[in-house]
Write a protein that binds this DNA or RNA. Sequence first.
DNA 1: ATTTGATATTTGTTATAACAAATTGAGGGT
DNA 2: ACCCTCAATTTGTTATAACAAATATCAAAT
Lengths: 243, 243
Amino acid sequence: MNEKKGAEGSLAGVDMAPIGRSETLGQQVRTQLASAIMAGRFKPGQKLTIRAVAAALDVSLTPAREALYNLAAEGILEMRSNGSVYLPTLTSERIVELTKIRTALEALAAREAALRITDEDIAHISRINDLMVAANERKDYASVMELNWEFHFAIYRASGMSELVRMIEKRWMMNSSYLNVIYPSFGQMDQGINNHHTMVRALHSRDPERLASAVVIDINFAADTLLDMIEAQGTERRQKAQR
Amino acid sequence: MNEKKGAEGSLAGVDMAPIGRSETLGQQVRTQLASAIMAGRFKPGQKLTIRAVAAALDVSLTPAREALYNLAAEGILEMRSNGSVYLPTLTSERIVELTKIRTALEALAAREAALRITDEDIAHISRINDLMVAANERKDYASVMELNWEFHFAIYRASGMSELVRMIEKRWMMNSSYLNVIYPSFGQMDQGINNHHTMVRALHSRDPERLASAVVIDINFAADTLLDMIEAQGTERRQKAQR
DNA sequence: ATTTGATATTTGTTATAACAAATTGAGGGT
DNA sequence: ACCCTCAATTTGTTATAACAAATATCAAAT
């Protein structure tokens, strides 16, 4: 009721950037925690106590609690019955389920993106891919990971489905505490790189099914290597326990 | 390490139910709010202030805030930049997006369920469907809604993918504040009923694709009627504003 | 050495108070 | 009627204190 009317005195049309209204402490804590999680700085299964977070970021319990419980509500962190919050541990069964979900969501995003994507977006994505290939050749795997993220989400964002993109982001974050598990012996990205080329070609030809199937292959490849790692780690631990 | 060993003094084998450790106030508030939302007792766009919730349930601000922000973090409620929490309002575009997401998720759940479901589950689901048909014949639409919920989730739960079921639940809750919008003139459920029969048959023959496609039809039918309602309401309001 | 029990410490939960920002309402001027 | 201004109220934010439950520590007993 108040956006269309005359209102000469109002500032309608001036269109200033909304003032940098500083985020609340709770949101800032959330951001800090989220980026630490995405960077893989916590170990799987690690406990995050309210007071530890509060002390580390020098805030009171209230915002620390809010941030932790928000992340838990989103399923990025895991809350046990006693109220403590942990980094989730991924069992093989859970990885299998998460992978199926990711397949469904990301295939949908890919199909929609193929229909809606603009030429500029394709150029941008192609550029990201080139950077990623370069980073891979100089074995800068940290950059590879980051560019891989950008590559995929640039595509997904082109779907125009913001809610869907948010959902996919969450699923990626659920895996990310395992980045340093998968990190060291991340030998042959080559197959992944190859797949990215297929995706770029599918974008150019605006072929939804081709793009979707390449995405699915990408997801399953990543999941398989992660499953192998987990498996290997499990037997290793089992052997160590037997000694 | 503590379940197999001798441990004569332990209570292994007695197998008592863990004591009913009462939920925290925050969780109780969350439950109350969630069931009120699912029952459609709030209007779309309605504002839920922390203090109003706290007063209504006679708790302090802390648990009320926690519950509201949890629901917001899950996307069931909508948080605006000033921190206030609202029931989400569904635009047509948002409904279209949500419907596509639901299609992807629920088709996946249906396919997995068709492969894993037991005979007892099928019998149970068939029974629920009979009750729903009966409720529809006596025009008890409140029961129809509830039984419809049970019918669908009994199937989805048979997929064995608990995370996926949780995700689907959330998306159903996002629509539910529009139940009383869709409620009054909910004339022909008949097509939906017919579709349910198809689903039961597909379960008996364990046919993933048949089941999935029936689920998709069900989702799209519900979405179309909701879209019509929203559309009708929109023009009505527009006409009223012109007078 | 292992187990038990008591004690100390940590940790989650919740109410309250104080503050700041946003919203509302009334009154006065154009 | 409309717009502005200023005060009053509402509302979100955060720190703190007090409590309870869970966990860890340690000494004594078997």
